[in-house]
Simulated assay, not measured.
Amino acid sequence: MLISKPRRRAVAALASAAFGLALLTGCGDDVSCGLDQCTVSIARETNASVSVLGVEAKFVSADENTVTLDIGGEQIQLTKGQQAVDVGGLQVQLESVTADQIQIEVARP
């Protein structure tokens, strides 16, 4: 069976959209995802964690400019204004720190 060019394009577009949605698996209420990256909010409390792009990010500690996280079993420190850090196959950058939560950006390189 032959498929016309317009129909092949539609099938390719649907396959691409399905792949994009698969990348977003694990995005929950505390995670807002686009095609290339996710913005993640984590409560500033002991044992707070969130799953993003198949990796778990856990809050460890924070002060007003620096956050320590456990991402995929590896502890990292992030500082406001610092470039993204590569960890667990992802790039992670600190966006903000408040009294209640931290916000990070997570992207696939």
Rank of each mutant, 00 (worst) to 15 (best):
M1S: 14
L2P: 12
L2G: 15
I3N: 08
I3F: 06
I3S: 10
S4D: 12
S4R: 08
K5G: 12
K5N: 14
K5W: 13
P6R: 10
P6L: 01
P6N: 04
R7P: 07
R8L: 13
R8C: 12
R9L: 12
A10N: 08
V11Y: 10
A13E: 12
L14A: 15
A15L: 09
A15E: 14
A15V: 11
A15F: 03
A17S: 14
A17N: 13
A18K: 09
A18Y: 06
A18W: 04
F19S: 14
G20W: 06
G20I: 13
G20L: 14
L21A: 10
L21Q: 09
A22H: 12
L23R: 06
L24T: 15
T25A: 14
G26C: 01
G26E: 03
C27F: 05
G28Y: 00
D29I: 07
D30T: 10
D30F: 07
D30E: 12
V31F: 05
V31T: 15
V31D: 07
G34D: 15
G34M: 13
G34F: 10
D36W: 08
D36C: 08
C38D: 03
T39H: 10
T39W: 05
T39C: 06
T39A: 09
T39E: 15
V40Y: 00
V40F: 00
S41G: 03
I42N: 01
A43E: 11
A43L: 10
E45I: 09
E45W: 00
T46P: 07
N47Q: 15
N47R: 15
A48V: 05
A48L: 07
S49P: 00
V50W: 04
L53D: 13
V55C: 07
V55K: 04
E56G: 08
E56H: 08
E56F: 06
A57I: 14
A57C: 10
A57L: 13
K58F: 08
F59T: 06
F59Q: 05
V60S: 09
V60Q: 07
V60N: 08
S61C: 01
A62M: 04
D63S: 15
D63E: 10
E64D: 14
E64N: 11
E64R: 10
N65P: 04
T66S: 09
T66E: 07
V67L: 01
T68I: 09
T68W: 01
L69W: 00
L69M: 02
D70W: 06
G72D: 06
G72Q: 02
G72W: 00
G73R: 00
G73E: 04
E74G: 10
Q75C: 06
Q75T: 15
I76W: 02
Q77T: 04
Q77Y: 02
L78N: 02
L78T: 00
T79Y: 04
K80R: 11
K80D: 07
G81T: 01
Q82V: 03
Q82Y: 05
Q83V: 12
Q83N: 14
A84W: 01
A84E: 08
V85H: 02
V85G: 02
D86W: 07
G88W: 02
G88F: 02
L90W: 04
Q91F: 04
V92L: 03
V92F: 03
Q93W: 00
Q93M: 02
L94I: 03
E95D: 14
S96D: 05
V97C: 05
V97M: 03
T98M: 06
I104H: 02
I104Q: 01
E105S: 13
R108W: 15
R108I: 15
P109C: 05
P109L: 09
